[in-house]
């Protein structure tokens, strides 16, 4: 039985609330708003300028951890070190690139008493950009055609097959729409320099961008589904404003995905809705989106529900949400004393 007077210690990554934000700050806000229990939030940051480290009322303490490239053993040792001090109850990773390591060590962390609510490797791989088209074919879901390439020489052939424009995507992040072979080559080098190979080239679909934030219970049921249309999109393709929608077809699509994968945890489906109302799945992100605080605002607090589910509590599926609820992101200059920056930089915690 959970002691409701003791704070639940929750470790969260993704504190980079920047122009292309990680979801961590939004996840923490939602948990603080909706868990109705005392919490102690432990931030896990990769960089010393992630705003969530310094924002008031977000993290109670933050530790610096190594980049995912350091491997799962380094990550395990870091988390164990932090756990020895903080006694973490629940851990919520929020980056695609770190999830492989966190899934790898999930069982060992559970043995230490650290709960998580993550997909299995099979679930994780099914929606991987590299496998998404095959996944769509298997489950009768619309996914644009794609081609995985390792060499820019392959672009000309893909361009002939798909026609222009086409979309050049990185394995984890970034997507650039290319209207010519030259633009496609430039995008290939730009993205591969940042995220490595392979590169995914995807057929371009014209339509309205709609996203869904959802939470699967790991048994084929969706605990929560919130569809949102991007109202304002930044030059990096990120939603700067969005609005919740009422659309049964979108809800059914998310339910179908959860049923097919038995998804455990939060995820986001990026959809292009065509003029003919076709719903093309462009990407499925294996974690909460940066706009997840809207789920709390609309009446389905997904991060708070995930914490309860990670702790083994039964959470009944949400049945209603507010349609027409908007989020509007904003920038805010945080004034930080050099001593705090120095403390985090020199000692790796604040």
């Amino acid at each position: 039985m959970t002691d409701n007077t003791q704070p639940i210690v929750i470790a969260v990554t993704g504190l980079n609330a920047i122009d292309s934000p990680g979801p961590g700050v939004a996840v923490i806000r939602a948990i603080r708003d909706g868990l109705n229990r005392p919490v102690r939030i432990i931030g896990l940051a990769y960089e010393n300028l992630e705003p969530g480290i310094y924002m008031d009322g977000i993290c109670d303490k933050t530790y610096q951890i190594s980049y995912p490239a350091a491997g799962s053993e380094v990550l395990y040792n870091a988390i164990k070190y932090i756990h020895d001090i903080e006694k973490i109850d629940v851990l919520i990773p929020n980056f695609d690139a770190e999830l492989y390591n966190f899934i790898t060590i999930a069982a060992r962390l559970k043995a230490l008493g650290i709960h998580s609510f993550l997909p299995s490797f099979d679930m994780f791989d099914a929606r991987d950009k590299l496998n998404l088209y095959a996944f769509g074919q298997k489950h009768n879901l619309l996914v644009p055609k794609d081609k995985v390439i390792y060499n820019s020489n392959e672009l000309a052939q893909v361009g002939d097959d798909f026609g222009y424009p086409l979309v050049v995507k990185g394995k984890y992040y970034d997507a650039i729409v290319a209207h010519t072979l030259e633009q496609a080559q430039k995008a290939f080098y730009k993205i591969s320099a940042k995220w490595g190979l392979p590169i995914i080239v995807q057929q371009f679909i014209n339509g309205t961008e709609v996203n869904i934030a959802a939470l699967g219970d790991g048994e084929g049921n969706a605990t929560s589904i919130i569809p949102m249309r991007k109202m304002y999109i930044t030059d990096k393709g990120k939603a700067w404003a969005g609005i919740t929608l009422e659309d049964d077809a979108l809800i059914e699509l998310a339910q179908k995905f959860v049923e097919a994968t038995q998804w455990r945890g939060g995820f986001e489906i990026e959809i292009m809705k065509t003029a003919k109302d076709e719903l093309y799945i462009m990407e499925i992100n294996p974690r909460f989106p940066a706009w997840i605080y809207l789920s709390a605002g609309a009446g389905q607090n997904q991060p708070a529900a995930l914490v309860k589910m990670a702790l083994g509590e039964k959470v009944l599926p949400f049945t209603t949400y507010d349609v027409g609820k908007l989020f509007i992101r904003y920038s805010w200059d945080l004034i930080v004393d050099i001593s705090k920056f120095q403390q985090f930089t020199a000692f790796g915690s604040l």
């Binding site: 309205t208 249309r229 969005g242 609005i243 919740t244 929608l245 009422e246 027409g324």
Partner: peptide
């Protein structure tokens, strides 16, 4: 049926946003 309107002429389509 699902279109929301008010007396000031604001019209909102919840299916498309």
């Amino acid at each position: 049926k699902n279109i929301a309107t008010n007396e000031f002429g604001f019209v909102f389509n919840p299916a498309t946003g």
